[in-house]
């Protein structure tokens, strides 16, 4: 199945650069991001807060607040068409219709003064030219599809009458209403409690199987990744540092940052006194280090790491990594690194 997916990329992001021009300087929030989303697959975009995950997703839909933000370079190819160059009108026809997004905050992402039914029906009337009654009927169907009990009654309620989990289901119903080809889920479960998280992820998986769309999940939760994703792209300081299959993530991560993320998870199978955190902080997007952005925090960094940024190199089939250690140029003192990476 994976091979078949490889042939049909739906969304290709190439060297995407989104910068914010503020009084304090230029913030390079997204600084050359590349990834491919194939038909029917689920890609996880993982990273710490401030790594540029959400900005990447907003950039795909051209939803960056401008000013201060601007896409300064790169391409976002959706079925071969570059969205960066698309007109506002073309973008409006794509948003909510072919590419939908679910945001992190279900409590505030719905308009408080309209019923949830109206908010779902609106997108149907806009993109599918349905009449008022048809759109309402389909909105009720969508609520039923996302598992909301007594949808006829719920459709007439305002968001404040619904719980957080219910509201996120409504957001999913809005996103799914027009049967999009790509669903971007920006931390869809972060604001929800654990039992609801599992339900929402399960719902997204079910709908993906029924409707056959591609999903990009943005998260900092590696548990969510392992549960839902086919592939994972790890982001650090505005760049993808590693891409691999979700199965490999916990066994075969190569980049020191990815390894650090995995090692910082609490383990149930070992006795741990303390969690192993990654030392230091994400660099300020206003002042990126000269070489690899992770070098100042990397336990293995050599001289070259502080002077030049490595390329994202093919490490294996379906596995790319951006780290000097895995290049022929590496002359570092740390030949144990590769073994350590394989072992962990």
């Amino acid at each position: 199945m994976l091979k078949q997916q490889q042939n049909e990329p739906v969304l290709e992001v190439r060297n995407l650069q989104t910068h914010f021009f503020t009084d304090e300087g230029v913030s390079k929030a997204v600084n050359g991001v590349d990834f491919v989303l194939h038909k029917g697959e689920t890609l996880g975009l993982v990273g710490e807060s401030g790594s540029g995950k959400s900005i990447t997703s907003l950039s795909i839909l051209q939803l960056i607040a401008s000013p201060p933000g601007r896409i300064v370079g790169g391409e976002v190819l959706f079925k071969g068409k570059d969205l960066v160059k698309a007109t506002d009108k073309d973008m409006r026809a794509i948003r909510g219709n072919q590419i939908s997004v679910i945001f992190q905050e279900p409590m505030t992402s719905l308009n408080p003064v309209y019923t949830v039914g109206e908010q779902i029906a609106e997108v149907l009337r806009l993109h599918q030219n349905l009449g008022r009654k048809e759109a309402w009927a389909k909105a009720v169907d969508m609520l039923r599809l996302v598992g909301i009990p007594s949808p006829e009654k719920r459709a007439k309620q305002e968001p404040f009458q619904l719980s957080g989990g219910m509201r996120q289901r409504v957001m999913i119903a809005i996103a799914m209403a027009c049967n999009p080809e790509v669903l971007i889920a920006d931390e869809p479960t972060t604001a929800l409690d654990v039992t609801i998280q599992a339900q929402i992820l399960e719902l997204m998986k079910e709908l993906q199987q029924q409707l056959g769309m591609s999903i990009m999940i943005i998260t900092h939760d590696l548990g969510v990744v392992s549960e839902t994703c086919d592939r994972v792209a790890v982001m650090y300081a505005g760049k993808i540092v590693e891409q691999l299959s979700a199965d490999q993530l916990f066994t075969d991560a190569k980049h020191p940052y990815t390894q650090g993320l995995i090692n910082s998870l609490p383990r149930l199978d070992q006795e741990q006194e303390e969690l192993q955190a990654i030392q230091g902080h994400v660099p300020s997007p206003y002042q990126m280090p000269a070489g690899c952005a992770f070098a100042p925090r990397c336990p293995h960094a050599g001289d070259i790491c502080h002077t030049a940024m490595p390329e994202l190199l093919q490490h294996d089939t379906d596995h790319e990594v951006r780290c000097w250690i895995y290049t022929p140029e590496w002359q570092g003192n740390d030949s144990t690194m590769m073994k350590a990476g394989n072992a962990s």
């Binding site: 939803l63 973008m91 948003r95 909510g96 945001f103 308009n111 609106e122 806009l126 809005i174």
Partner: peptide, 13 residues
């Protein structure tokens, strides 16, 4: 507000 971002993401004018 977030719901205005949602409205934009719906493709509204």
């Amino acid at each position: 507000q977030d719901y205005i971002r949602t409205a934009k993401a719906k493709g509204l004018k």
